[in-house]
């Protein structure tokens, strides 16, 4: 296929990749258990005694336990993400909001997605994707602080409550916090739908190894990406001919 003359770019550190898949798993878990928590129904046989009803079956208690466990996994996996950010340039593909070029490239991508242009400039990560990940991290940040604000107040004198408790005041009251947590959960899922599609589409359209990049860490581009500067630094250690083996 046309892959013959493409080059291999090492972009994502394993920390980011592990984080990504942990995040995928935990967000799906958080969302499903979260929705159950928001509008629960009884699973299991209906007895009048909660002690009989709860044994061995799915219940609010178990759903909440899974939600909180996933929340911890999710939060902890950020440490991996942060470590990758520090170690690897490809983990730092942030939108260059402050550059004029960024907006020009953004328009370019936009025109492509609206089928006005048949393709957009080659990039390691296109500007629209960059913006959407920042938006997602922001939403995830909201979920974490609102989630822990609700969660830690079980023990109002704990250190967790001291850190997260003020979130409840900041946002008005705890009821509002629960509403925000719920709405943002939906926004995250909307992101995920579009994001998964975009990844699959990119793979299909350009065969640049989009999806596999989240496993392998490398992308294959036939043309030099416009944002190559974000990973190379001139030394070029992360760009290889595709026939070479993958490192990192």
């Amino acid at each position: 296929m046309e892959r013959g003359h493409s080059k291999q770019y090492y972009v994502f550190s394993p920390f980011l990749r592990i984080f990504h898949w942990l995040m995928v798993l935990s967000i799906v878990t958080l969302f499903t258990t979260g929705l159950y928590i928001g509008d629960p129904f009884f699973i299991g046989s209906q007895g009048l005694e909660p002690t009989y009803a709860v044994t061995g079956r799915l219940s609010m208690e178990i759903m909440r336990f899974i939600h909180f466990a996933a929340a911890y996994i999710f939060t902890v996996s950020f440490i991996l993400r942060a470590y990758g950010f520090w170690r690897n340039k490809g983990d730092r593909l942030f939108p260059h909001f402050w550059k004029k070029q960024y907006y020009e490239d953004l328009l370019d991508v936009f025109l492509h997605y609206t089928f006005i242009k048949s393709s957009h400039k080659p990039c390691l990560r296109n500007p629209l994707a960059r913006a959407s990940y920042v938006a997602l991290y922001f939403m995830v940040f909201i979920e974490i602080i609102t989630g822990f604000a609700m969660y830690t107040m079980i023990k109002p004198n704990s250190w967790g409550a001291k850190i997260y408790g003020p979130v409840n005041q900041l946002l008005g009251d705890e009821y509002t916090v629960h509403i925000i947590h719920h709405y943002v959960a939906w926004l995250i899922i909307l992101f995920a739908i579009v994001h998964v599609y975009m990844a699959a589409r990119a793979d299909f359209m350009d065969r640049e190894g989009e999806i596999s990049s989240m496993f392998s860490g490398v992308k294959f581009l036939p043309h030099e990406p416009v944002d190559i500067g974000d990973i190379t630094d001139g030394k070029d250690s992360s760009v290889r001919d595709r026939k070479h083996s993958i490192t990192g």
């Binding site: 629960p40 009884f42 909660p50 009803a53 709860v54 219940s59 759903m63 004198n157 005041q169």
Partner: peptide, 28 residues
């Protein structure tokens, strides 16, 4: 932190509610 006496406003009603076992069991 909100200026309420801790001894009386320290806990959520939900965390002290006698119906909590039903909540945990998903019985509503």
């Amino acid at each position: 932190s909100q200026g309420r006496p801790k001894q009386f406003y320290g806990n959520r009603i939900h965390d002290t509610c006698y119906r909590r076992p039903f909540f945990n069991s998903g019985m509503f």
